[in-house]
């Protein structure tokens, strides 16, 4: 058997990674969704300051890039579960699927939340408008900002728009963390 065929056979014999992808995707999807919910309600309940960003968003300083680490968790789980070596390419692939899973879970939870609190988007829009109204921008700029932001916030409710914005970035960043995970957690060959 030649080397390529041997490698192919080895790859085929490796256990499936879907459980790890699913677990990491679900955990990080819930974390990302929960963080966006906290930020949204904090914005709804805050007084309009005229600033485009509320002070509660400073909390985000600690959670930057949190959604990018799903790939690493998936690899850690996969490597721990089966005690096998993971090639960089496979780590990237697992990371990509985990990123897609995170984006899908976030979208699904967002849609479910629309049934739990159907007024959330409207409250968020009202809060944003109040914030713009309190700002010191010139009137025509203010109105332009309000119109485009409100339109964008309404568009974000659609599944297609959410997937369009979330899938590529979560996919790419989790590819990178998947590779890092393969390097850090994968058992050394030989």
């Amino acid at each position: 058997m030649d080397e390529v065929a041997e490698q192919q056979a080895e790859q085929n014999n490796q256990p499936p990674y879907w459980t790890s992808v699913g677990i990491a995707g679900l955990i990080f999807g819930i974390i990302v969704f929960a963080l966006s919910l906290v930020t949204s309600y904090a914005m709804i309940n805050s007084e309009p300051t005229g600033s485009l960003f509320s002070p509660v968003q400073l909390l985000g300083v600690f959670v930057c890039l949190v959604g990018a680490f799903g790939g690493m968790l998936a690899i850690w789980h996969y490597a721990n579960e089966y005690d096998i070596s993971i090639k960089l390419g496979k780590g990237a692939l697992i990371g990509l699927f985990t990123g897609i899973c995170i984006a899908l879970v976030t979208v699904v939870f967002n849609q479910i939340w629309q049934f739990i609190d159907p007024d959330m988007t409207q409250k968020l829009i009202d809060s944003t408008i109040a914030n713009f109204e309190a700002s010191e921008l010139p009137d025509d700029t203010k109105q332009q900002m309000i119109d485009s932001t409100v339109q964008s916030m309404r568009d974000q409710n659609s599944i297609g728009t959410q997937l369009l914005y979330n899938l590529p970035m979560y996919g790419i960043l989790n590819v990178l963390t998947g590779m890092i995970g393969a390097k850090v957690f994968g058992k050394k060959e030989g």
Partner: peptide, 12 residues
């Protein structure tokens, strides 16, 4: 929008 849920994006 692409980085909306990945970074706080505070302009300051």
């Amino acid at each position: 929008q692409s980085f909306n849920s990945l970074c706080h994006q505070i302009a300051d």
